[in-house]
Every structure is written in C-alpha cells, then in structure tokens.
Nucleic acid binder design. Structure first.
Lengths: 238, 238
DNA sequence: CGATTGCTTGATACCTCTCAACCCAGGTGG
DNA sequence: CCACCTGGGTTGAGAGGTATCAAGCAATCG
C-alpha cells in the first residue's frame, strides 16, 4: 500500500490546511474554482498526499481507514475480476470525495489516472466529530447522495446498448465536468474509457473515429477532442 | 400521479404507526423479518399506501415531496428513453427506502412490480426533524450509503460483458435478498430482468434455458428457479 | 372457448470482440 | 543525430454473441 508510506511521516493534522484554496473543480491545473461542497467541516484535519500516475491510493479489501478528497488530478476507482478484466466505477476530479464506505473495507481500488494531490481524512476522526457537527454531517450526507447519483447515472449509462451511445454520453459527461469550451481534454487512456464503458479499447477508438467521420467531433490529438455538434451528441446520449 | 389520489384523504401522521412490525425483509409475505435499518427515526410519521401491479408511485421529474419505504411487495425504479426503451435502476423489497434524492425532483420513476404496500414520509418533515435527531440523521446517511453501494454494484454488474455472467449475477443477488432455500422466486417478469441487465427478453430467456441445460439451475416454473449448483453460478458471477 | 399475456425457441442480421498489423510520439542510448 | 524501443492509439479481417424478427406454447381470464 503506497499510501501508508506517505502517511507515516505525515500524520493527520500536521499539514497546512487546505480550505477553498485547494483546487479548481477540474483536473486541469488552470481552471476556475467552483467547489460543489464547501470545506468547512472537513478541511481542517486532512493531510495532503501526492500520487504519481497509476499509483494505488488504496486497494479493494483494504481497511477503510481514510476518506479522500481530490485536490488536483484525476482518481479512478475500480475493481478487478478474476480473469484480469478491470471495471472502472468512477473518475474523481478536484473537489470530489472518494473512499466513503458502509463497510470497514474498501469495496473498490483507487488509483491515480495522472499525477494527483489528494487529501486524506481519518475516518475515525470524521465519525467522531460528525455527531453534533451539523455542517459536517450534512456535508457527508450530501456526498453520499451525490455518489449515489453518480453511480446511478453510470449504471443507466452502461445499460444503454450501443457503443456510440456510451461513448457520446461519456464525452458529454466528461465535457461537463471540466467546464471548458467545446474542447474536451481527456485525462485518461482509451483503456480507462473502455473499462468505464464496458467496451474494448478498439471499439472506443473506432467509435471516436466514426464520430469524427460523421462530423460530430474532431480528434485534435488523441487526448484533445473538439465537439463540433453538441446537439447530435446529446441526441445520442438521450 | 396516482400517489396524490391516495394521499389526499390520508394526510401524514394520521395512519397507524408501522414500527418494526411492518414487514419481513422479503417480498414474499411469509419470510422472517430482518430489517437492515431500524425504524425508530422514521416510522412515527408515515402514511401507508397501496399500489397494484405496474401502478406508478412517482414519475421521473415529479416534485420529490416524499420518501418511501417498502412495507411489502417489490418496487422498481427506472428511467425511460426517447425510443421507448426502459432501463431499470433497482428493485426495492420490504425494508428498502427509495425516492431519496439530492434534487427537488425525482431522477427516476418508481412503479410497483407486484401489489405493494409502501410507507410515504414527507420529505420536508424528515428534513426538519433530522438536525438534532442523531438517530434519524445517521439512518438517512446509512440509507444513502447503501443506495450508493447498490448502484455501484449494479454498474459493475452491467459492465460485465456476457449475458451468462449478468443473468447468473442477477440470480445470486436476488437469491440473497429473499434468503429462502435454494429456490429463488422471481417477483418480476423477464422484461423487468432484461431491462435491469441491459439485455433483451429473448436473451434472458435463452440464457436461463442454457443454464438449465448445463445443470446449474432448474426452471420449476417461469418464476420459480431452483439453484442446483451455487458454486458454478458464483463462478460465473465472478 | 377465444383472446390475451408472458415465456420460449428458431433463423438471420448486425454489432462488438478478438487477433493482428501498423502508426505515431516520446524517450533512450549509441 | 539517428536508430531503436516503448506505450498508446488506430485500423483491418474474421469470429462470435446478442438483437431482431417471427412463430409457437402455456397459463390466465373474460
């Protein structure tokens, strides 16, 4: 567990506080801030950690000692199947909380999609302070509800039949998260996208090419996609 | 909205209270009770409603005025797409809470899979009483987390590639919910199952037949399935 | 009984997976 | 500077699985 390496020298509450200054709600370092959930309840006790690309934050089955918030970068939560296949549960960007669990153990693994800063909060500490702290309780409740919503939307997305619908939905969704212009910049590889959508890497690639041929998007580079026809894309998503 | 019809004459807090006596945690009327979440915080203010098969409890987009708990029967939450396709988000059995939302509007519709009794709680009332009521707050928090878990598991299930895996997973999961013997009794139609798994009705039927030919299950009737080889089924479930 | 509804089964088309080759950009080292 | 290597991405051909269309069966109900 790479995490313990980093937490050992840096115990909770020793790191500088991270209030709203922490990060823009985007994985790109230069976006404007708009935190969905403010930091009043949590931020005063977190320790800041750094993870490099593909480094694991925690593994499925580990003791769920911490709660995390993304400060910058993108974290993916996922699960691995016996045959080596991977299923990505969600992508988390700055401001998102992950690692919230009912059980004592994490039900998914968490890994850095790119270089990341995350803030770790001791779960015990949070749980101890939650009763009586209305702000914190409400905040956690909201986080849980939002996680529920996201998981639900993901399930409904995966239920869609065709690859085009899935890929279009993904572009729309990811485009909304980083509220840039019409140009979407992907933080993740095709493999990540495929594992998120329940497709293969080749199908994702082919579908993107197809969307480009149809004039809905332009593949500026592999990771930069310009959306030419939002309407049509939304129609597919619809 | 059929609900308002029923709530109009029966305003909140007029109905008899429903404590733990309400229902066994199973959609079958004769199962043993084992509520995952106790009722202390909620039950004192709910009104009991009845819904017949396929009747709508609420629709996507409706004002989310109420919070519901299943007393008996099975409720499905789902969403409809433009082309008429339906995607089922979840099945809710006795003891389950549904209709919890971040937004002011329901994000999915809710319908009765079979004849159902549900308890409706005014959302405003709950929200008013939650601060300061530790039991109720924690309860709601737990419900949100459990909903998140279920949605996540559903997403991971839908990410699985093959129809066999999906159907096997569904059988295992549903079998666990009604903790009967090795015989699983389905409350829902093949269409419901198909819309939950992102498959067609024919594929579900064929897959079940295949599982029977392979000796993993026996189709006693269309709705009663005996599990002959749990191990093998779990292996498919992955 | 005929009609309806839910379910099963069959034949075929289509879409996605699989396997494979190839391309391209970036990094390394001679 | 260029050859080489590597990892990520694209593209092609064929196989396989699921959707689609269609027919038939069983149970239920007026």
């Amino acid at each position: 567990m790479p995490m313990s390496n980093q937490l050992a020298p840096a115990t909770a509450a020793t790191f500088p506080v991270v209030h709203d200054a922490i990060a823009p709600r985007s994985w790109e370092p230069n976006e404007a801030a708009s935190l969905a959930i403010d930091d009043v309840g949590l931020a005063s006790t977190g320790s800041v950690l750094h993870f490099t690309q593909d480094q694991q934050v925690f593994g499925e089955g580990d003791q769920a000692e911490f709660l995390f918030k993304v400060a910058s970068g993108v974290i993916r939560t996922c699960r691995f199947h016996g045959d080596g296949r991977r299923q990505i549960d969600d992508f988390h960007i700055a401001g998102d909380i992950f690692g919230l669990e009912t059980s004592q153990h994490y039900q998914v693994s968490a890994e850095a999609v790119c270089d990341c800063m995350v803030i770790a909060y001791r779960r015990r500490g949070v749980e101890k302070r939650a009763p009586g702290n209305e702000t914190l309780s409400q905040q956690l409740f909201l986080v849980a509800l939002q996680s529920m919503n996201r998981a639900r939307e993901h399930a409904l997305l995966l239920g869609r039949r065709s690859a085009v619908e899935k890929v279009a939905s993904f572009l729309i969704e990811w485009g909304q998260r980083a509220p840039a212009s019409t140009t979407v910049t992907l933080a993740m590889t095709r493999q990540d996208i495929a594992d998120y959508l329940g497709l293969t890497i080749e199908t994702v690639s082919r579908t993107l090419s197809q969307l480009e041929r149809d004039g809905l998007i332009t593949l500026v580079t592999a990771r930069r996609i310009e959306i030419k026809d939002v309407q049509a894309l939304r129609a597919l998503h619809g």
